[in-house]
Amino acid sequence: MQQNTTRRLTYAALMLALGILIPMVFHTFQISGGIFLPMHIPVLLCGFLCGPQFGALCGLVVPLISSLITGMPPMYPTAVAMALELLAYGLMTGLLRKKCNVYLALILSMLVGRAVSGCANLVLLGLAGKSYTLNVFLSSAFVTALPGIIIQLILVPLILIVMKKAGLTDLGK
């Protein structure tokens, strides 16, 4: 029990750090985070590896800490909306990790997270007196983000398979 808790805490801390560092690398090389979604992968992995509580917490704090440290994403409304979206990703992958296969868990988590993002942006931008249309939501959440979605669907299962084969996770047991 103690070893499992220590492992989950360690993985959560690692995913939190990667969730901040990977986007910094992308910004250094001027690679668009809105297209490739580098912050999402560590949060999705955190949910799978550490469960819903750690996944949700990681998702909530990564964009906020990143915003405070680097200014990216801007705190309001982007980082706040992303914190809610990534909270949903971490929570959902954590809840679904042993209930269905990784691809279905990823797709469902991504859909729920994007719905949360859409609602958050609608409210946050509305409070700022700005509009947020269905077309803007669909374009940013699915069209612009398509390369990142594809990368997530390839990379997350691959990382989980490698970790399982190396005995670094109990996922699937």
Rank of each mutant, 00 (worst) to 15 (best):
G47A: 04
C50S: 13
P52N: 11
A56N: 10
L57M: 14
L57D: 00
V61Q: 00
P63K: 11
L64S: 03
I65V: 07
I65S: 12
L68D: 03
T70A: 11
M72H: 14
P73C: 11
Y76I: 12
A79K: 04
A81Y: 00
A81S: 15
M82W: 00
L84R: 15
L86R: 13
L87Y: 05
Y89H: 08
Y89E: 11
G90Y: 01
T93C: 12
L95K: 15
C100Y: 03
C100I: 15
N101K: 08
Y103I: 13
L104A: 07
L104F: 06
A105N: 13
I107F: 13
I107W: 01
I107A: 10
L111K: 04
V112W: 01
G113I: 15
R114V: 02
C119K: 01
N121D: 10
L122C: 15
L122H: 05
V123L: 14
L125E: 08
S131F: 05
Y132F: 15
Y132I: 10
T133R: 08
T133I: 06
T133N: 07
L134S: 14
L138W: 05
A141P: 14
T144A: 07
A145I: 03
L146F: 15
L146I: 10
P147M: 01
P147R: 03
G148S: 14
I150K: 08
Q152C: 06
L153C: 09
L155Y: 03
P157N: 07
L158R: 02
L158D: 01
I159W: 01
I161Q: 02
